[in-house]
């Protein structure tokens, strides 16, 4: 392990000033991903700026919007009464992730910017375009049974490992960030870059921007939401496929639907094609299946992950059907 400096930030401005122009600096929140990557030699920072003392620990209401501070721990987020009441999909997603011990320290902001668990990325002895641009992607011909089927490129087929972010994608959440230019809020859908030929560049915000929180707009009246995760082990495993859905049905017809897919792409995958296919469609399993098929027409599975296509299709149908049938 290389020696590094450690600083505790006294304000958001001070934290951003320390990290913004320093490519060797990293923010330290819960550390559940960053510290692992440091042990593996994947991250080798010169400076860790501990942001856990900053005032970003609250869940607050602002009119209809719920603001979640970037430092709200996963456990606290999942247990928050307003989250459980208004956004069951979010609470369910958080509780489906990691382990109790990890959720007690992992933060909301850190969750959004965690790195892929692709085994070639986390092994510093292997090539990886995300870790070492231009070195190649061994996953495409190698071990990829849990890697991307949507939106990947010839340069990278990594998946984003988060459950929480999949729920946020379905909730049309906005991400609060601050960089040297000041604070801003951007839709989660615009927070992640498409993979393209630079898989090392994952976010649309400037290097050194600090995630300060997440804003959750209200769901349409009468809408219901749910998250379902499939994993190989019953607990403490990353998804091999997950679905977050928000659904409003009137008179047997879909009035509002949002679907986000996890473990299929480099970022939470908002299933816009499926959503468009479902607007005003009958809220029935055949319609859900047709919509899922339409979304998955763009899937480009690899040698060993084609199982994800029917898995996701079945999961979309099951989750939407449960949201209809559960009333």
């Amino acid at each position: 392990m290389r020696e590094f400096a450690y600083a505790r930030a006294r304000s958001v401005d001070a934290a951003v000033a320390l990290v913004a122009d320093n490519p060797g600096a990293r923010y330290l929140g819960g550390g559940t991903n960053l510290v692992d990557l440091m042990k593996l030699g994947v991250e080798r920072p010169d400076l860790l700026v501990d942001v856990t003392g900053l005032p970003m620990h609250e869940v607050t209401e602002d009119g209809d919007t719920l603001h979640v501070g970037a430092l709200v721990r996963n456990s606290d987020l999942a247990a928050h009464p307003l989250v459980r009441e208004r956004y069951p999909v979010l609470s369910q997603a958080v509780l489906a992730g990691a382990s109790g011990q990890l959720r007690n320290v992992a933060t909301t902001g850190g969750n959004l910017v965690q790195r892929t668990r692709c085994g070639y990325f986390t092994d510093a002895t292997k090539p990886c375009n995300k870790r070492m641009p231009g070195s190649g992607c061994p996953a495409i011909e190698g071990e990829h049974h849990n890697l991307a089927i949507l939106g990947a490129s010839d340069h990278c087929v990594a998946t984003h490992p988060s459950d929480l972010a999949v729920a946020l994608a379905a909730l049309d959440a906005r991400v609060g960030v601050q960089d040297l230019a000041g604070p801003q809020e951007i839709p989660l859908a615009d927070f992640y870059r498409p993979v393209g030929d630079r898989p090392d560049l994952e976010l649309t915000v400037r290097d050194g921007a600090l995630v300060t929180g997440v804003a959750l707009p209200p769901l349409p009246a009468g809408a219901r939401s749910a998250y379902r995760k499939v994993r190989e082990r019953a607990s403490y495993a990353f998804a091999i496929g997950s679905v977050a859905a928000v659904l409003k049905v009137d008179d047997g017809r879909v009035r509002d639907v949002r679907i986000a897919l996890g473990a299929v792409a480099s970022h939470p995958w908002r299933a816009r094609v499926a959503e468009r296919a479902l607007v005003d469609a009958p809220a029935t399993p055949p319609a859900f299946e047709a919509a899922a098929e339409a979304e998955l027409a763009a899937a480009r599975p690899l040698r060993d992950n084609a199982y994800k296509v029917p898995l996701i299709r079945n999961l979309v149908v099951a989750v939407l059907s449960e949201l209809v049938g559960d009333r």
Partner: peptide, 29 residues
């Protein structure tokens, strides 16, 4: 149900060489 070490023949390495990727049963299993 779970345990499998996955060989990448180009490297000669079992590439899921950690307890996140090599699944051992947990209590809920």
């Amino acid at each position: 149900l779970l345990e499998e070490s996955i060989m990448d023949g180009r490297f000669g390495d079992y590439v899921n060489h950690n307890l996140a990727d090599y699944h051992v049963a947990t209590n809920p299993d």
